[in-house]
Amino acid sequence: MFLDTCTISNGGCTPNAACSHDNTTDTIVCTCKTGYTNTGGACKVVCKDTCLIKNGGCAPNAGCSHDNTTNEVVCTCKTGYTNTGLAPNVVCTDACTIGNGACDPNAGCSHDNTSNAVVCTCKTGYTNTGVAPNVVCTDTCTISNGACCANARCSHDNASNAVVCTCKTGYTNTGVAPNVVCTDTCTIKNGGCDPNAGCSHDNATNAVVCTCKTGYTNTGEAPNVVCT
């Protein structure tokens, strides 16, 4: 009775190789199992984890692992990258270049310095009103008047889109840059009115209105008020 050599110490093959016989000569044939690659020669088969050889053929931005059932190589895009290849090919593309990384249209997409995860950051002039981890970028001017004072209008700089606070008609900025403090213009040097005029506001526009006090007559030419 002859004993199959493959049943004795795997026929001399390495543990990660399968032992079989040549159909013609019946000599031992060592063949690396799925997930392993022969790094030896034809006569000496050395089976090495395929993932350790050029990342298993995976893209540079992919991690190489093995299927739990078959042990086949599995390429999985690393954090911050998205697979844009057609199966079975895995092509890992920077997630920020695909649909803005799923960030809000008014957010910039970048990566965390440590984990490389996608980070969505609201652009200048927008404020995050989402609940973590969601980032929802809302026009800052629509939130508490963009932190402008009540008597100021909130708008955006044409170049940078930064919030700009501008005092409404009838108010003057008495703050020190960059702070804008809007004060009733009539309380500042009588609103620019003649000393003998009273300062008030137009009911419709809130613009300053200078009116000569009792006993004085306006001798100026509109819009100037000169109380004589």
Rank of each mutant, 00 (worst) to 15 (best):
N83P: 08
T27M: 15
S155C: 03
G175T: 00
C58K: 11
D22V: 01
C103L: 04
A207Q: 06
K44A: 11
T69D: 14
V136K: 08
P133F: 02
T172P: 03
N113Q: 11
N224C: 02
T82K: 14
C210L: 07
T25W: 08
T84K: 11
C210F: 09
V209P: 03
N145R: 05
N83T: 07
N106P: 08
E72D: 15
N23A: 12
A222K: 00
T14Y: 10
A150K: 13
A159P: 03
L52M: 11
P178Y: 13
C122Y: 01
T79F: 05
T214N: 10
G125N: 05
S115K: 07
C199T: 03
C137F: 05
T211I: 11
T121C: 04
S160C: 08
V118G: 14
F2T: 12
C58T: 11
F2G: 13
V90N: 13
S65V: 06
I8Y: 15
N173H: 10
P133L: 02
V73E: 09
T217Y: 02
G40Y: 06
D94Q: 08
T129C: 08
N196Q: 06
C6T: 05
C77K: 06
C210Y: 04
G56W: 12
N23E: 06
A150L: 12
I143F: 10
P15K: 08
I8T: 12
C47F: 08
